[in-house]
Design a protein around this nucleic acid. Structure first.
Length: 139
DNA sequence: GCCAACGTTGGC
DNA sequence: GCCAACGTTGGC
């Protein structure tokens, strides 16, 4: 099991919209960055990820699960870009803000804290455990 | 709204 | 293959 983090501006695609998609989930299209794409290519069905609201909120708001492995991005004909599908699993009881992550012992190396530009990121098992704890979820 | 950080593009 | 120019992201 590997853990991830998906960033989205809620103006464009929010957690509520993701939840509304239900168990079929939604294609995580639109990523045009090789690092982020490579992360998606490494994902397996059943991997879990955090859903993070960038710009507005700047907080982790939910947990998602990969429900389809990487396949061509339907929003482009460019064969370089593909993406996974994710479905909402559950919201955090308490959203975990970027500010909280920045000062939380154990999260110093979290990509979210150190590379604000990467939209699809790996999360270590330890970071996953800590953020779930802060969010009021069992790890 | 600004701007720093970073990734990509394309000329050479 | 280098690097300047440019575009985008996202925190502030």
């Amino acid at each position: 099991m590997t853990f991830w983090l998906f960033k989205s501006e809620p103006d464009t695609w929010s957690w509520d919209q993701q939840v509304a998609k239900g168990p079929e989930g939604e294609e995580w299209h639109g990523v045009r960055n090789y690092q982020a794409r490579n992360n998606m290519r490494a994902m397996k069905i059943g991997d879990l990820g955090f859903f993070y609201h960038s710009n507005i909120g700047k907080e982790v708001v939910g947990v998602v699960e990969v429900c389809r492995e990487s396949s061509p991005d339907s929003t482009t004909d460019d064969p370089r870009w593909d993406c996974v599908w994710i479905k909402a699993v559950r919201p955090l009881i308490t959203p975990v803000s970027l500010d909280t992550c920045k000062v939380q012992p154990g999260l110093e190396k979290m990509v979210l804290v150190n590379n604000s530009r990467l939209s699809v990121q790996p999360v270590s098992a330890e970071e996953w455990r800590i953020v779930c704890g802060l969010g009021g979820l069992p790890a």
